[in-house]
């Protein structure tokens, strides 16, 4: 069984079909990029896969659980236990240090472990910035803290929403490199992006248009390394 399966998923707001009969499967350990123009349904799909919204119709199986049938309380538990989120605007708590931001995810999941949180920061190359507040970190550093926070609870799947949207090329490369290492470790990655260079790094690229899957491309030359177009 795939880790994530969407069968005939619809999300309808009045007359607008934000998702229109979407079928998608993501295998365990797979790295999938979702692309599409604004209004194509990317965010709606992210919300549903991230257990923050439910489909109007259809079945969404995450690790065998149909999230369309779960209560809001259970969805919180599923989100906490199985999903790691990375955001375009980082969304770090501005009065907590980098270390405390990572520990926050541990706190809601189980028991905060400062040593483990420190190791997660070490993994993203920010051990020396552990005691810094987000305002004292660069955009790239903040996104790396966000990655450390997403992976600290060893989630089944990492959902990244425009993770490099606010980063320069150097930091973009660093973040993609982190994704590659996570993929090597067996983590499932779903990355929503506008950036073709980031999308092309993934094993598979899914293009959404008007709420439907317009195209799916498998990356035959997958290496996990970014290649900047000149």
């Amino acid at each position: 069984m795939s880790l994530l399966e969407l069968h005939n998923v619809y999300k309808i707001y009045g007359d607008l079909h934000a998702l229109d009969n979407v079928d998608l499967k993501v295998e365990r350990g797979e790295w999938v990029a979702i692309m599409g123009p604004s209004g194509s349904g990317k965010s709606t799909m992210m919300n549903i896969i991230g257990c923050m919204d439910k489909p109007t119709k259809g079945e969404v199986l995450l690790d065998g659980i149909d999230i369309a049938k779960e209560s809001a309380k259970n969805l919180t538990t599923i989100r906490r236990d199985k999903i790691g989120l990375i955001f375009q605007q980082f969304h770090l708590v501005n009065y907590l240090t980098a270390l405390e931001n990572v520990m926050l995810a541990q706190y809601y999941h189980s028991i905060p472990d400062e040593k483990e949180a420190y190791e997660a920061l070490e993994k993203v190359g920010l051990a020396d910035r552990a005691k810094h507040l987000p305002s004292q970190l660069s955009g790239g550093e903040q996104q790396r803290v966000c990655v450390a926070r997403a992976l600290i609870n060893h989630p089944e799947i990492i959902l990244a929403d425009e993770p490099t949207g606010n980063l320069d090329d150097s930091n973009e490369e660093t973040v993609v490199e982190l994704f590659r290492r996570l993929h090597e470790d067996g983590t499932t990655l779903i990355v929503v992006t506008h950036d073709p260079e980031v999308a092309e790094v993934a094993q598979r690229m899914v293009v959404l248009r008007n709420g439907k899957i317009a195209r799916e491309t498998v990356n035959e030359n997958f290496t996990g390394h970014i290649r900047f177009h000149v």
């Binding site: 919180t76 989100r79 236990d81």
Partner: peptide, 15 residues
């Protein structure tokens, strides 16, 4: 936004 973030990363209403 911070409350939304907390809930997104798994905070319950009780938390």
């Amino acid at each position: 936004r911070e409350i939304g973030l907390r809930k997104a990363i798994g905070a319950s209403d009780g938390s």
